[in-house]
């Protein structure tokens, strides 16, 4: 049995600067067999290892069926991510994964879907949006709601423009603080909710971002009559091992790295929003 702690070497085949603090590493395992056999679901993550510095959990944003791409969009926040940001094409890192449970995509088919992201939490759901757009006919109405702190944090504008053009697809963007020429909503993302179009009995909500934002969305959706079991969220906790051993990501009886990071609201309803867990 392979050692789940041991990374495999991967090469950076492209580095894309998405915004001043966000960048994407497109990776390829140097062992072609490993690369070919690597399978993941949108919402899962890898542990990326920077030589001499350490590991960090990063969600995979590329399409699971696109074997040429293995993309990780990373925000520069700490020691490891600052180091990763300094890498160039051709540099090598370690990768192990994929870990965790992704989005309920099979379950979401034939449903309306609302994807809500806030802050810089968009990376884990970008993969899910791509996934649905490529298989557009399998899903009902799709609403993409993105909130950012400042309009300059908004990345992938072209992608949002593209998504907006897809049939039966609503794209709503809000910035807490906008600048001139910001074409979208200024204010909290919750201000956009009344523009959403979905059938409350046939909808799947997927969200990712600050827990405060997710709490507000949950409250709104429940008030609209959406069932607890139709709401899915990606949680974030400290993770060292990725396989439910190290204990840092415990959330009540759950390990976020193994049982999540995507949870059905129903599974975590007792602790969600309780400070200290």
């Amino acid at each position: 049995m392979p050692n789940p702690y041991l990374p495999y070497e991967a090469k950076i085949i492209e580095r894309i600067q998405e915004s001043p603090t966000l960048f994407t590493l497109r990776l390829r395992f140097t062992d072609p067999v490993i690369h070919k056999d690597f399978r993941f679901e949108p919402g899962q993550f890898n542990m990326l290892y920077l030589y001499g510095v350490g590991e960090v959990p990063i969600s995979i944003v590329s399409d699971p069926q696109d074997e040429h791409m293995l993309d990780h969009t990373i925000r520069t926040v700490g020691r490891v991510t600052r180091g990763l940001a300094a890498l160039k094409e051709g540099d090598r890192i370690g990768v192990r994964g994929p870990f965790g449970r992704g989005w309920p995509l099979a379950h979401a088919e034939q449903h309306d879907v609302v994807v809500v992201t806030g802050g810089l939490g968009c990376a884990p759901v970008v993969s899910v949006i791509h996934y649905m757009m490529r298989r557009r006919e399998r899903f009902g109405l799709i609403n993409i709601v993105q909130g950012v702190k400042h309009s300059s944090d908004f990345i992938w504008k072209e992608r949002y423009d593209q998504w907006r053009k897809a049939p039966d697809t609503e794209v709503l963007v809000a910035a807490d603080a906008g600048e001139s020429l910001w074409p979208w909503h200024v204010g909290p993302v919750t201000g956009l909710f009344d523009d959403l179009k979905f059938d409350k009995d046939r909808v799947i909500i997927m969200m990712c971002g600050p827990e405060g934002m997710m709490r507000v969305v949950v409250k709104y959706m429940l008030a609209q009559g959406v069932d607890e079991s139709a709401i899915w969220l990606s949680m974030e906790r400290d993770m060292h091992c990725g396989i439910g051993h190290c204990g840092h990501c415990q959330y009540g009886g759950k390990f976020v790295c193994r049982d999540g990071p995507v949870f059905c609201y129903k599974e975590i309803v007792d602790l969600f929003g309780v400070k200290g867990f």
Partner: peptide, 12 residues
């Protein structure tokens, strides 16, 4: 748990 070595070409 494991050890990593990096050679002159940057290979790990």
């Amino acid at each position: 748990l494991w050890r990593c070595e990096k050679d002159n070409t940057g290979q790990l």
